[in-house]
Structure formats: structure tokens, C-alpha cells
Design a protein around this nucleic acid. Sequence first.
DNA 1: CATGAATGAGCTTTCATTCAT
DNA 2: AATGAATGAAAGCTCATTCAT
Lengths: 186, 186, 186, 186
Amino acid sequence: MTGARLAGAQRSREALLSAAAAVFVESGVQAPVRTVAERARVGVGTVYRHFPTRADLVSAVYRHQVTECVDLAERLRAQPVRPVEALELWVAAFLDFLVTKHGLSDALRSEDPALANLHALILDELVPACDALLRAGQDAGEVDPDVAALTLLRAVGNLAVLGPGYGRAEARAMTVRLLAGCRTSP
Amino acid sequence: MTGARLAGAQRSREALLSAAAAVFVESGVQAPVRTVAERARVGVGTVYRHFPTRADLVSAVYRHQVTECVDLAERLRAQPVRPVEALELWVAAFLDFLVTKHGLSDALRSEDPALANLHALILDELVPACDALLRAGQDAGEVDPDVAALTLLRAVGNLAVLGPGYGRAEARAMTVRLLAGCRTSP
Amino acid sequence: MTGARLAGAQRSREALLSAAAAVFVESGVQAPVRTVAERARVGVGTVYRHFPTRADLVSAVYRHQVTECVDLAERLRAQPVRPVEALELWVAAFLDFLVTKHGLSDALRSEDPALANLHALILDELVPACDALLRAGQDAGEVDPDVAALTLLRAVGNLAVLGPGYGRAEARAMTVRLLAGCRTSP
Amino acid sequence: MTGARLAGAQRSREALLSAAAAVFVESGVQAPVRTVAERARVGVGTVYRHFPTRADLVSAVYRHQVTECVDLAERLRAQPVRPVEALELWVAAFLDFLVTKHGLSDALRSEDPALANLHALILDELVPACDALLRAGQDAGEVDPDVAALTLLRAVGNLAVLGPGYGRAEARAMTVRLLAGCRTSP
DNA sequence: CATGAATGAGCTTTCATTCAT
DNA sequence: AATGAATGAAAGCTCATTCAT
């Protein structure tokens, strides 16, 4: 009775999330709420019911992906590869995320206080995940100890912003070079 | 009489340019046109007369700064330093520009087709300037021949986007590391 | 089983009435229906089932209080006090009602045709109650015969609207003076 | 050149004021800004240009009328009538204002902090004007010294709220009785 | 040429009301 | 009967852009 309703609500929520993800990719995180609603075939009111503020929507859209990144970091640490290689793999995967959902890097860049949620999420989850990989590399003497996780994340996040003449391949190449520059000089 | 008119018009144009530069630094390139007009002590109509589209204004504002960068590149090439050092100096200076006038990196990043003017300007002037330095380094065997000027410029432009926990110092450090990763492996 | 249902429905209805009364006091009769539903721990649908229009809810909320006023009038008429004194006591009590449940005076003032119910209630019950007291005073030669019950009720209802610099004490004082002005000149 | 523009703007401003006055009478001070704009045959933007907040509009609409009331008070004080009569005349005139522009009494009643302007206006101008008349009556021993100007103004403001069965005539009669109740007992 | 008033589309957000479950 | 998700019409406010003077 209530179950069916709840199931419907859950479906709405998911429809909204995927609609929003798509819209953010196409038009950036600043896209009108109405656009998201239309994409999800839903009234605007429904958007606000599920996500009272736009920031809630943005955060929700990316929370899932952030979590995946965190999980990946953990899996990589368990792999029998050299720490620096794990870091490289992880950063490459992170970049792919960002590049695919280019809305996310917009969101990361934004200083809008309403996105504090999302920023907190990053600080609380992504930074530690990256930090673990980074420290492993530093402890192994492969990575320069001056590199901080947050700084690296933001830098990669920035390198992920594509534009004319600067596509995925370029972003990847630059990220690789940035990481190379983070290794200890032999 | 026409002379006076022209002089007045010229004055307006310059007032607008410096007002816009200031406003862009404070509030980004998206700042309301009205804000620029007020800062220049001029009616909005005047803005539109001189710069029919916002992109015209943005381009004009940064054209001058782009030119300075180009000039710097030429001066550096004449210096008795190793090519890779000249490149590093230039990139550092370019970064400082971007970081100081953070409006510019917004503008560079923007895919707004209306900014085609500005993009063209970069392709036509900034890329060749950078390219000259880059090629010198590559010819000297100091820089990896796979690095393209446009790619490097965009990457540095991206690294220049500041945010919480990622200030000037971090941007500089990351840029240095990126360049380090662009050098030929010994 | 149906009995239980009915009992449940009755409970809902009463929960709604007291929730609405509280909400109206806090936020006025214009408060969102949703607020009332939440206060009553009930779904909005239930509000609409019991009270198809907002006016039904408002009327129901105040019917009970109107009835109390009517009863008081009857009790006062039976008291061994001079008619004009009975009138004064009743008006004072009525004012206290209004001032305490400031939602009611909002409702009385409203010209919203949807509140016709409530207005009818007043005409049918409150006016006659007041009228009886009034006439007694007029018959005793203590109250000016030109004073009409409805007019007096509305005036007192209006005087009950508090605001900055005009609190309960002021409302009471003004009501007393209004009534004094309704007495026959000696 | 600019003069004509200014004249046009002035005309707009006045059109807005009279449109707003009319709309407020018909629908209360809470009427949508858009309604006022339409009534004035003007875009919403124009309303906001002239009156950045709704409160500014409301205040402007009534400022003029408040001033007239104040002027009237001064003229009446100069008349060769007994103080209490002057007070009665003034209150009657004030009531007529309120009753004619019934939006004003809504506005006076409102506790919306955005209307602080208007409230201040009343406290600063209307209260002293009323106070002068009141004190004259009190000094002459005709009016009860316990009556305060603000209280009286609010009470009259309240009595001015019309409704079904309570029209202008009733409001006037009640106001007269209220004032009668404010006189010193002989 | 310069001005700035006017315009109105567009965005966010709220809430009364309906209706499938 | 009860629920609460969904809907969509308002309403407030901002700004890019036009155009009469």
C-alpha cells in the first residue's frame, strides 16, 4: 500500500538522478531545475520534493560516483602493483570519471556555499582515499613527499575540464605528465 | 567637433575596458553588463554600442593582456637562458596572469561560441608564442617532442583555476610539476 | 471493524481540528495545509477527505469556540448583574477569545467567499447571542438603541487585531472605551 | 534629451503609484507585483526599477496620503474649534482615508518587517500629528489623559477594516463611539 | 554618440489539490 | 480510509537587450 508509493517515489528519485546527470553533462550544473524536471518527465515540484535545494540534487548526483572512486582506491591498494602505479591507475580512473561527467568538475570548482555538502563529501572521502595511495607511494620513496592529496585532486579536477582543442586524450596526457612531475627525481 | 566626439568615444571605450577588467576579476566574466556600465560611469547603451556582444567586451578586455604575454615570450627567447628555462619562466608568468585576472581563465575555459573571437586570438597569438618557446626546448632535446603548445596552454589555464584549498601557491607548484613531466626523461 | 474504522476517522478529525487550531494561532488562517497535516501527524489527503475546502476546516475549528461564546452569553444573562455590565463582561470575554486565538479574527475579517460558512455561523449564533445582551441593555435604557449587534461584533473583532505598539492591554482598553461610547448619555 | 527620459520615468512612476493604489484597494497589499505592472501597462522590471522591494511600493503609495493627514491635523489645530472637536474631525478624516484606500489599513496592520519604512513613517509623522490634537484635548480637560496617540491610531485603523455587514457607515459610527469613550466623564 | 528607462523571458521556489495505491 | 507523491500554476526577482530621446 505504502510500499507501492514508496517504490514509485524511489523510481522518481532515480529518474531524477539520471536525468540530472545527463542534463549536467550537457549544460553544466547551472542548468535550470525545470530542464531536469522535463528530462525526467516530472513536474518541478517533484524535483523539490526529492531535493529541496539545487545543491542537494548536485550532491546526490555525484555522491554515488565519488563513492565508486573511493572504492576503486581501496581495491587498487590491495593490488600487487607498485604504489606509484596504483596511484597512476587511480588518478587515471578519476580523470575518466570527471571527463565523462564533466558536470562534476564544474561542481568541484564552484565556490557556491550551497555546494558545501559536496565539498565536504570530497574532503571526507575522496581526499583520504587519494591520500592513502599517495602516502603509500611516498613511503615507498616513489612520490615526492611534498605532494598533498587535496592539491593533487584539485589539479586533476582542473585538468579534466575539456574545451576546444583539449579533449580527453590531451587531458589524460597532461595528467600523466603532472603525475610524472610528482615522482621523486631518481 | 567630430574630433571631440571621437575623443569622447575613445575615452568611453577605455573606461569600459578597465571597468570590465576590474569587474571580471571581482565577479567573473558572467558579471551583469549593468555592473560594468556602472563601474565605468556610463549608460548600458554605451556598452552595447562599443561592444555589441558580451564576447566582444571579454575579448577586448583580454586582448591587451594576451599581447603582453606574447611580448614576454619574445623577450624571453632573446635571453641567454636555456630554452627549457625560458619556457618555465614564461609559463610561470602566464600562470600569474591567469591567477591575477581570474576572469581570463574563466573566459578561456568557456565553450561559449560567442567567445570564438577570444579563442581565435589565443590560437593566433598565444599558441605561436608558446610554440616558439616549446620548440626551442624540444630542439634542444630538453622537452618531450610530443607536447603541443595548445594543449600545454589549456592545461596551464586549467591549473590556474583556484578554489578552496587550492590557492596560488598550489597552482604554481602543480604547474611546475606539469612542466617537469614535460621534460625529456634523462 | 467498521467501528474501528469510524473511530479512527473520528480520531483523525479531532487531531486535525486541534492541530489546525494550533497552527492558525501560530501562523494565521493562511498557513499551508501541509503544515496542518504534519502537525496532526496525518497525510494531506486526510485533511482533504475530512475538510474538502480550507474554509470547512477553518469553520470547523472555530465553530466550537463560537459555541462557547454563545453559551457564555446565556450564562451571563442569567446573572444578577445590570444588563450593561453583562454586556461588558461578555464583550471582554469575546475579546479575550479573539486575542488568544488570533487566527479567528483573521478569519472573521476575511472576505473570502469560501468562508461563507463561518460567516453564516456568526450571523446565526454569535449575533443573536450578542443581540440578546445588547437588547437587554437597551431595554434597560443603559445602551444606545442605535447599536446593532453585528456592527458591535465586527468592531470588537477589529479592535482585537494586535500589532506592534498595540497589544492585549491596548485592545482591551479600546474595547472598554468603545462600549462606553455605546452607553446612553446620562 | 535626458529631460524627456526623466519625464517619461516620472510618468511611469506615477502610473505605477496610481495602479498600485487601485490594485491594493481591490486585492490588498499582498497583490502580485505582476498585477500592478499589468494595471500600469508596464513590464514587471519597471516596477522593480522604481520600487526595488514591494515594501517600497507600498510605502510610496501611502506616504503621500499620510502626509495629507498630517497637513490636515495642522490645519485643524489652527481652526477656532474646541480641541476635542478638532480631534473628532481629524479622526473622521483619517478614517475616511483608511476606508477609501482599504489597502492602507492592511498595510498598517501587517507586521512584515519589510514595511518598517511605512511603520516608521507613521510613528514619525502620523503619531505626532495625532498626538498634538490629542494633547490639546487633554490639556483642555476634554479628553481622558490616559489615551495614547499610537493606540488610538491603531484602534481607528482597525475599525476601518470593512467587511460584510460592516461598511463605511458602521465604521464611522463605531469610531465616533470610540472617541466618545475617550472623552473625560463629565 | 550617449543615455538609462522599459521590456519580458527566464529562473527559483512554494503550495493547493489530485489520485493511485 | 489514509497516505503522500506528483503536479503545475503562481509569484518573486534578475538581467540582457532594445530604443526613444
